[in-house]
Amino acid sequence: VTLFVASYDYEARTEDDLSFHKGEKFQILNSSEGDWWEARSLTTGETGYIPSNYVAPV
Rank of each mutant, 00 (worst) to 15 (best):
2 T>L: 14
40 R>H: 05
23 G>W: 05
53 N>V: 09
25 K>T: 12
54 Y>T: 05
39 A>P: 00
20 F>C: 00
32 S>L: 11
22 K>Y: 06
26 F>M: 05
29 L>A: 04
34 G>E: 12
31 S>H: 10
4 F>C: 08
30 N>W: 08
29 L>P: 04
26 F>D: 00
18 L>E: 00
21 H>G: 07
51 P>S: 05
31 S>L: 10
24 E>Y: 05
46 E>K: 15
55 V>F: 09
50 I>D: 01
38 E>K: 13
21 H>R: 14
10 Y>R: 04
30 N>C: 09
57 P>S: 08
3 L>S: 05
11 E>Y: 10
6 A>I: 03
28 I>Q: 01
28 I>H: 00
20 F>Q: 00
43 T>Y: 09
40 R>M: 12
31 S>Y: 13
43 T>W: 11
31 S>Q: 13
20 F>Y: 02
4 F>E: 00
32 S>G: 10
51 P>R: 07
33 E>S: 13
15 E>N: 12
53 N>C: 15
22 K>V: 09
2 T>F: 11
56 A>M: 14
1 V>G: 13
56 A>G: 08
53 N>L: 09
24 E>K: 02
54 Y>S: 11
37 W>G: 01
39 A>F: 04
37 W>I: 05
37 W>E: 02
36 W>P: 04
40 R>T: 10
35 D>N: 09
28 I>L: 06
8 Y>T: 09
43 T>D: 10
27 Q>R: 08
58 V>M: 12
37 W>S: 01
1 V>F: 14
44 T>E: 00
10 Y>A: 01
20 F>I: 06
18 L>C: 04
4 F>A: 08
43 T>R: 13
21 H>L: 12
47 T>R: 10
49 Y>G: 03
25 K>A: 08
18 L>M: 13
10 Y>P: 01
43 T>P: 01
45 G>L: 06
33 E>V: 10
48 G>A: 02
21 H>C: 14
55 V>M: 09
5 V>L: 06
55 V>N: 02
47 T>L: 07
38 E>Q: 13
40 R>C: 08
35 D>F: 14
15 E>P: 13
47 T>G: 03
24 E>A: 05
19 S>W: 03
18 L>N: 01
43 T>A: 10
33 E>N: 15
22 K>P: 03
42 L>R: 02
42 L>Q: 06
56 A>I: 14
23 G>N: 05
10 Y>M: 02
29 L>N: 04
19 S>T: 09
29 L>G: 02
28 I>K: 03
14 T>Y: 15
8 Y>Q: 12
13 R>S: 10
46 E>S: 09
22 K>S: 07
38 E>M: 15
40 R>V: 10
57 P>A: 09
2 T>E: 11
48 G>L: 04
15 E>V: 11
9 D>K: 04
37 W>M: 06
13 R>C: 14
31 S>N: 12
47 T>H: 07
13 R>F: 08
3 L>Q: 07
49 Y>R: 14
25 K>S: 07
25 K>G: 05
8 Y>C: 15
56 A>H: 14
1 V>A: 12
32 S>I: 10
18 L>F: 08
6 A>S: 05
3 L>T: 08
45 G>K: 05
48 G>K: 02
14 T>F: 15
33 E>C: 15
39 A>W: 02
46 E>M: 14
40 R>W: 07
28 I>C: 04
25 K>R: 11
5 V>P: 00
21 H>M: 12
24 E>F: 04
22 K>N: 04
11 E>P: 04
8 Y>V: 09
35 D>Y: 14
40 R>Y: 10
3 L>I: 15
21 H>V: 14
45 G>D: 05
31 S>M: 15
10 Y>D: 00
3 L>G: 03
23 G>T: 02
37 W>F: 07
5 V>A: 07
20 F>S: 00
55 V>H: 03
40 R>S: 04
8 Y>H: 10
25 K>C: 12
11 E>C: 14
35 D>L: 12
22 K>A: 11
44 T>I: 01
52 S>K: 14
57 P>C: 07
7 S>P: 04
47 T>M: 09
51 P>D: 05
55 V>G: 03
9 D>G: 06
1 V>T: 13
46 E>C: 13
42 L>G: 02
58 V>T: 07
17 D>L: 10
13 R>A: 10
14 T>G: 15
42 L>W: 06
35 D>H: 10
11 E>G: 05
28 I>P: 02
9 D>L: 03
9 D>W: 05
18 L>D: 00
7 S>M: 15
41 S>I: 06
29 L>W: 06
15 E>A: 13
2 T>Q: 12
10 Y>N: 02
4 F>W: 15
54 Y>E: 02
45 G>N: 07
12 A>F: 02
29 L>V: 07
27 Q>N: 06
14 T>D: 11
58 V>K: 05
3 L>C: 12
16 D>L: 14
47 T>N: 05
16 D>E: 12
9 D>P: 07
31 S>W: 13
47 T>A: 07
3 L>H: 09
27 Q>K: 07
49 Y>N: 08
2 T>V: 13
16 D>W: 15
11 E>V: 14
35 D>R: 08
42 L>C: 14
1 V>K: 11
40 R>A: 04
6 A>C: 06
49 Y>K: 13
48 G>V: 03
34 G>D: 12
14 T>P: 02
22 K>R: 10
35 D>T: 10
35 D>Q: 10
57 P>M: 09
7 S>A: 13
23 G>E: 03
29 L>R: 04
57 P>T: 05
41 S>W: 02
32 S>C: 12
26 F>H: 00
47 T>F: 07
30 N>Y: 07
23 G>M: 03
20 F>V: 04
51 P>I: 04
36 W>Y: 11
18 L>R: 01
14 T>V: 06
58 V>A: 09
2 T>H: 11
45 G>Q: 06
37 W>Y: 07
50 I>F: 01
24 E>W: 07
53 N>I: 10
8 Y>G: 07
37 W>H: 03
6 A>D: 00
10 Y>W: 09
57 P>Y: 06
12 A>L: 01
22 K>F: 06
46 E>L: 15
9 D>I: 03
30 N>D: 11
15 E>M: 11
53 N>T: 11
39 A>T: 01
39 A>N: 00
40 R>G: 00
31 S>R: 13
49 Y>P: 01
